[in-house]
């Protein structure tokens, strides 16, 4: 593992829960690695599976999707649908021999600031272990 490797991570965070948990982490002055850049979405159900594929092929070392806990979705079942789609993308990744662990789906409720921080650290560390995404430097994609 390259000690200097700083993964490039992107996260789709649902506006009602995980994005809000990040708010809470921020206001609580939690510290976590700066590698993940969040993108706010209204609902994890808005996350088009292609976003994950595109991010990966663009060279993201990890893609994170954060939503409300099952049963808590502001839009009732958006997160459950997100989970199904996420499952499909992960399956595509496994079958094609890509690394499904570069994709992570987590339920973090609005009040779980500490969980958000922990997830940011954990995902960062997990991706560091996997190393660089070789798609980043591949021209003939």
């Amino acid at each position: 593992m390259d000690a200097a490797f700083e993964p490039k991570l992107v996260g789709f965070l649902c506006r009602w829960c995980t994005y809000q948990a990040a708010d809470l982490a921020g206001v609580g002055r939690s510290r976590y690695p700066a590698n993940l850049v969040p993108i706010r979405v209204m609902c994890s159900g808005r996350v088009d599976p292609l976003f994950l594929v595109r991010a990966f092929l663009k060279g993201a070392d990890g893609v994170f999707v954060g939503g409300c806990h099952p049963g808590d979705c502001h839009y009732i079942e958006g997160n459950l649908r997100a989970r199904r789609r996420f499952g499909v993308v992960q399956t595509v990744f496994s079958v094609l021999g890509l690394e499904p662990k570069r994709l992570r789906l987590a339920w973090i409720s609005a009040s779980e600031g500490p969980k958000f921080t922990a997830q940011m650290k954990d995902f960062d560390a997990a991706v560091k272990k996997l190393g660089k995404n070789t798609a980043a430097a591949e021209v003939f994609l």
């Binding site: 700083e6 990040a22 708010d23 982490a25 921020g26 206001v27 002055r29 939690s30 510290r31 976590y32 700066a34 590698n35 850049v37 969040p38 706010r40």
Partner: peptide
């Protein structure tokens, strides 16, 4: 865009911020 919670309050390495 959320500069405060995503950057200013949660990180401290200036270049990464």
């Amino acid at each position: 865009v959320r500069l405060r919670e995503d950057v200013i309050y949660t990180h401290h390495e200036r270049d990464k911020m």
